[in-house]
Simulated assay, not measured.
Amino acid sequence: MAKVWVVPEVQDQKLKKISLEMITLARRLGDVEAVLIGEGVSPVAAELGNYGVGKVIVADHADLKTYTAATYGRVLSDLIRRDQPEIVLIGNTATGRDLAPRVAQRVDAGQISDVIDYRDNLFIRPIYAGKAFQQVTAVAYPLIVTVRPNVFKAAEPIGGGAAPIVETATVSLTGDDLRVIVRDVVRQVTGRPELTEAEIIVSGGRGMKGADGFLILEALANVLGAAVGASRAAVDAGWRPHQEQVGQTGKTVSPTLYIAAGISGAIQHLAGMSGSKVIVAINKDSEANIFKAADYGIVGDLFEVIPLLTEEFQRALAWNSEQAG
Rank of each mutant, 00 (worst) to 15 (best):
Ala2Val: 13
Trp5Tyr: 11
Val7Ala: 06
Pro8Tyr: 00
Gln13Phe: 12
Lys14Phe: 12
Lys16Ala: 04
Lys16Leu: 14
Ser19Thr: 09
Leu20His: 06
Gly30Ile: 09
Val32Lys: 02
Glu39Ile: 03
Glu39Val: 05
Glu39Cys: 13
Glu39Phe: 15
Gly40Arg: 10
Val41Asp: 05
Val44Lys: 04
Gly49Met: 06
Gly52Glu: 04
Gly54Phe: 08
Lys55His: 13
Lys55Arg: 15
Ile57Asp: 01
Val58Gln: 05
Ala59Val: 04
Asp60Leu: 09
His61Met: 05
Ala62His: 11
Lys65Glu: 13
Thr68Met: 11
Thr71Trp: 03
Gly73Leu: 08
Val75Tyr: 04
Gln84Trp: 00
Leu89Thr: 05
Leu89Arg: 03
Ile90Lys: 01
Gly91Met: 02
Thr93Gly: 04
Gly96Tyr: 06
Gly96Trp: 07
Arg97Met: 11
Val103Ala: 07
Ala104Asn: 03
Ala104Asp: 02
Gln105Gly: 15
Ala109Glu: 03
Gly110Val: 02
Gly110Lys: 02
Asp114Ser: 08
Val115Ile: 07
Val115Leu: 03
Arg125His: 08
Lys131His: 09
Phe133Arg: 08
Gln134Glu: 12
Ala138Met: 06
Ile144Phe: 11
Lys153Leu: 07
Ala155Tyr: 04
Ala162Cys: 05
Ala163Thr: 14
Pro164Asn: 12
Ile165Pro: 00
Ala169Phe: 13
Asp177His: 11
Arg179Phe: 11
Val182Asp: 11
Val182Pro: 07
Val186Cys: 06
Val189Trp: 05
Thr190Ala: 08
Thr190Val: 12
Thr190Ile: 12
Thr190Arg: 10
Leu195Gly: 01
Glu197His: 11
Ile201Leu: 02
Ile201Met: 01
Ile201Gln: 00
Ile201Gly: 00
Ile201Ala: 01
Val202Asn: 01
Ser203Met: 08
Met208Cys: 12
Lys209Met: 11
Gly210Lys: 10
Phe214Tyr: 13
Ile216Gln: 10
Ala219Thr: 12
Val228Phe: 04
Ala230Cys: 11
Ser231Gly: 07
Arg232Pro: 07
Gly238Phe: 13
Arg240Tyr: 05
Pro241Gly: 12
Glu244Met: 06
Gln245Ile: 07
Gln245Glu: 12
Val246Tyr: 00
Val246Lys: 01
Gly247Phe: 00
Ser254Asp: 00
Ala260Thr: 07
Gly262Ala: 09
Ser264Arg: 13
Ile267Glu: 03
Ser276Gly: 11
Ser276Leu: 04
Ala281Asp: 03
Asn283Arg: 08
Ser286Arg: 15
Ser286Leu: 06
Ala288Arg: 04
Ala288His: 04
Asn289Thr: 10
Ile290Gln: 01
Phe291His: 06
Ile298Ala: 08
Val299Pro: 05
Gly300Leu: 04
Leu302Val: 10
Phe303Lys: 09
Leu309Val: 06
Leu309Cys: 03
Ala316Lys: 15
Ala316Gly: 11
Leu317Ser: 05
Leu317Ile: 15
Asn320Gly: 15
Glu322Ser: 13
Ala324Arg: 14
